[in-house]
């Protein structure tokens, strides 16, 4: 594809700067986790055994599907299908709440198992990594809700949908981060 055929960056430039800043943050956190693990393999294995992989897997599938819904919403608004866009955004929002529900259930389970930040290095990393990501999900849902409301109010059109694209870019980033976080914390042991 020639350079002039390429499209403009979806969404706002400022949000992309923000996304890369966030990716840098998570990148640092992942690397620190991995190197801390290399010094305490047994401890991390023992900690990971306390986690239920199925819950992590369920949440990964939920978040990917939610990301798909947002991609469909963006595609719909590009065709000027306002109602379809709004419905896909609502679907993404529902899936986001499902993620939050499953994660809260998991946090409750962890608390019952006696996990806390100062127990050991693994629990500290696990709780702060997933907790920090959890806050991003909640923030992403707030953004999606605002954009969905504006969509139903007729605030976006095919030629004027930066808001939808911006919210979408952020939500995909939240998903992308979870994909790495999931294998790091739940799968590789």
């Amino acid at each position: 594809m020639r350079a002039q055929d390429r499209e403009a960056l979806p969404g706002d430039l400022a949000i992309w700067i923000f996304i890369f800043a966030e990716l840098l943050v998570f990148g640092i956190l992942f690397a620190v986790y991995a190197f801390a693990r290399s010094a305490h393999v047994a401890l991390f294995n023992q900690g990971q055994a306390l986690l239920d992989r199925r819950l992590g897997l369920a949440n990964t599938l939920v978040l990917i599907t939610s990301s798909y819904a947002v991609a469909r919403a963006t595609e719909a608004i590009h065709r000027d299908r306002v109602q379809a866009c709004g419905r896909w955004l609502l679907a993404a929002l529902l899936l986001g709440s499902l993620f939050v529900g499953i994660k809260c259930h998991e946090f409750a389970r962890d608390a019952q198992a006696g996990m806390n930040l100062s127990h050991d290095l693994f629990q500290m990393f696990y709780l702060s990594l997933t907790g920090f990501h959890f806050l991003h999900v909640v923030m992403g849902m707030a953004i999606l809700a605002a954009v969905a409301a504006k969509t139903f109010a007729g605030g976006y059109r095919a030629h004027d949908c930066t808001g939808v694209e911006t919210a979408g870019a952020w939500w995909h980033m939240v998903d992308l981060v979870w994909i790495i976080l999931f294998i790091l914390v739940y799968v590789l042991r």
Partner: peptide, 22 residues
């Protein structure tokens, strides 16, 4: 596992984020 995850990431970036065309 790592390769699968990175592959997933790149698919997500290309198609969902839509960076394939920019």
């Amino acid at each position: 596992v790592l390769l699968l995850a990175l592959l997933k990431g790149q698919f997500l970036v290309d198609h969902f984020m839509g960076l394939r065309r920019v």
